[in-house]
Design a protein around this nucleic acid. Structure first.
Lengths: 161, 161
DNA sequence: GCAAAAACTGCGATTCATCCGCAATCGCTT
DNA sequence: AAGCGATTGCGGATGAATCGCAGTTTTTGC
């Protein structure tokens, strides 16, 4: 992970950050390389922050010492979503969560007890969905499949990461 | 469909409505037979009102001449959901929609152009989901599967792709 | 049947997630 | 370095859904 030391001039930090691969994505999306965007991208790339909500991301930014406005977090997340840099999901929590977009499509298993999210993909289900859509004369654009349940292993007594 | 004429005394109307089968559900749920609940149940039983939002249901009630508060509509829908009388779904519209609960589980195909909703159920997908959950040591409680796309028949005139 | 108890309703105010407007600032091209 | 257009941060505005409470309606006890 890349860290900004407080005494490094912002300009140079940005410049240094600008050459990481993540920022190629920003460029390609026509987004300027700004500190909020770079920092958010950085946090989002941390596997520990997959499926994080805007609010929670905002808090993490504060923890890391970045005073980025909540509105900006929402804006940047939307831009990243539009740019295909990350994906938005609506689990049952009522708030949207985001994950870095991966090349391979996948669906989600959500533990309602510990909030753990497991990703999976199943060719049979995918194919079946296409068939169903075709049978009903619908050109599929996307779908959402969320499986909700409870872990049956004991590591799920309370929230783990 | 049952209609309330404006000049019929409310008490008698309620009494008459109280013997319809839908109200057995109210009784069983421990809910009192009241005009708002009866009227909402009545509208919800109309196939044309499947997958309707609270807001839209509220408007329909006004159209039919029932001055039922929006808060009451939300409350009643929640109670009906809790009682298993109807089911709530979250499509991508951002607002929850409701449908009369049926005995057989089904999933949904949603046309993003005309908002049409098609119900389907697929044994293969269902079984597959169970297997996946089991494989990941999760006891499944429920799931949500929504397929989004665009009608390809002309009743849904559009060339958005 | 009738009055009290228990539920229910309507209204406005409130919450929660998310977004907007605008003035100040920053990144990027020249 | 300079200027323009994009971006940020703030507070305020949304829209969906909920809550509190006072007044009203069902149901219950007699």
């Amino acid at each position: 992970m890349i860290l900004l030391s407080t005494d490094e001039p912002i300009g140079s930090a940005i410049k240094r950050l600008a050459m990481t691969d993540g920022n190629q994505a920003l460029k390609k999306a026509g987004l300027k390389i700004t500190l909020p965007r770079v920092k958010i991208l950085e946090l989002m790339q941390n596997p520990e922050n997959q499926h994080i909500s805007a609010e929670d991301l905002y808090k993490k930014l504060l923890e890391v010492g970045e005073e980025i406005g909540l509105a900006t977090v929402y804006r940047v997340l939307n831009q990243f979503d539009d740019a295909g840099i990350l994906n938005r999901h609506h689990f049952e929590s009522g708030k949207a969560v985001f994950e870095m977009s991966t090349q391979k499509h996948h669906d989600h298993l959500v533990c309602l007890t510990c909030d753990k999210v497991i990703e999976f993909s199943d060719e049979v289900i995918e194919r079946r969905q296409d068939e169903i859509a075709m049978r009903h004369n619908i050109k599929l654009t996307h779908h959402s499949l969320y499986l909700y349940g409870h872990c049956t292993n004991d590591s799920c007594d309370h929230a783990d990461e």
